[in-house]
Simulated scan of single mutants.
Amino acid sequence: MKFSRRILAVALPLLLAACVPQTVRVKGDAALLGQQQAREHQLADANHWTLQGQLGVSDGHGGGGSGSLTWTQDGDHYDFVVRAPITGKSLFRLSGGPDGALLEGMDGGPLHGSDAEELMQRAVGWHVPLHDLRAWVLGLRADSGPAELSFGADRLPSLLQQDGWTVDYRRWDAAHQPPLPKVVFAGKPPYSVRLSVESWQFN
């Protein structure tokens, strides 16, 4: 059960990791914030996509794990699948939508919940802001409350602080227009997670 919880924790906090300051980081002025608003407008209807990448997580107390992640977003429905990298056989899945959530791969069989956040709290004791993560993983501010942004030399978001979480965008994929996050750290102590995105696919 302890191993299961470690691997599951890798998959689902998604963007909650410790931040290390970058060489260049400036507060958003009117021009930078306007550019970010334009990005957010372009991606406002991006509700059908698949992200593939690698995750590593630490709970700040010597526990943690890593695995490969496939996150599919289909409107209000989501499907997170994480696989352990060594055997390639251990698989954990969180799926669902407005009608509820299903967690598979835990000891004791599948678990059902009214929503993903409630299910994660019950299963592993984490408060995971999944609604916000859906925006943060795209490099956007969530609609849940005020957010503070800082920008890097590339004029893209470098640091996002919202709802007590800190999201540190380390690298962007400029092959996409608008650009999308490539390497992300984020955190809310004691938890830290690193996400390295290998590919984005939009439907």
Score class of each variant (00 low, 15 high):
199 S>D: 06
19 C>H: 14
175 A>S: 09
168 D>G: 12
100 G>L: 10
28 G>K: 08
82 V>D: 04
10 V>F: 12
8 L>Y: 14
113 G>C: 14
23 T>A: 15
86 I>T: 02
169 Y>A: 10
5 R>E: 05
140 L>E: 12
198 E>V: 00
62 G>P: 01
186 A>P: 09
64 G>D: 07
60 G>L: 00
198 E>M: 00
172 W>G: 06
170 R>K: 05
169 Y>Q: 09
167 V>P: 01
79 D>M: 14
84 A>G: 07
139 G>F: 05
90 S>F: 11
96 G>P: 10
129 P>S: 03
195 L>T: 14
58 S>I: 06
20 V>R: 11
132 D>I: 05
139 G>Y: 04
167 V>M: 01
48 H>Y: 05
84 A>Q: 04
164 G>Y: 03
21 P>S: 01
99 D>V: 15
68 S>I: 01
127 H>C: 06
175 A>K: 10
194 R>M: 06
150 S>R: 10
2 K>Y: 04
121 Q>R: 12
163 D>E: 07
169 Y>S: 04
201 Q>I: 08
154 D>L: 06
29 D>N: 11
195 L>N: 11
83 R>L: 00
14 L>D: 08
64 G>F: 11
144 S>E: 03
21 P>M: 02
13 P>F: 14
39 R>G: 03
7 I>P: 05
121 Q>E: 12
151 F>H: 02
50 T>Q: 11
128 V>P: 01
32 L>I: 10
66 S>I: 02
39 R>L: 02
153 A>S: 15
37 Q>N: 09
51 L>V: 15
170 R>P: 00
143 D>W: 06
117 E>A: 13
197 V>S: 01
12 L>Y: 14
93 R>H: 15
180 L>Y: 02
131 H>A: 14
129 P>L: 01
156 L>F: 15
132 D>S: 13
162 Q>F: 05
16 L>T: 10
127 H>A: 08
129 P>G: 01
150 S>M: 11
134 R>G: 07
167 V>T: 01
168 D>E: 12
162 Q>Y: 05
27 K>V: 03
129 P>K: 00
31 A>H: 12
144 S>K: 02
135 A>P: 08
197 V>N: 00
68 S>G: 09
156 L>Q: 14
141 R>C: 06
200 W>M: 08
59 D>Q: 04
46 A>Y: 07
42 Q>R: 10
54 Q>K: 07
168 D>P: 11
104 E>H: 14
8 L>G: 08
183 V>D: 13
32 L>E: 04
12 L>W: 12
119 L>Y: 08
48 H>N: 07
161 Q>P: 04
67 G>H: 10
1 M>Q: 14
167 V>E: 00
169 Y>I: 05
14 L>Q: 07
8 L>K: 07
182 K>H: 11
79 D>C: 12
66 S>G: 08
160 L>M: 13
159 L>N: 12
12 L>P: 03
156 L>R: 15
84 A>D: 04
200 W>K: 09
38 A>H: 03
2 K>W: 04
191 Y>L: 06
190 P>W: 12
4 S>W: 10
34 G>R: 05
130 L>K: 12
200 W>A: 09
70 T>F: 05
71 W>F: 11
123 A>M: 09
159 L>S: 13
39 R>Y: 04
184 V>D: 06
9 A>I: 02
146 P>E: 01
144 S>N: 03
55 L>W: 08
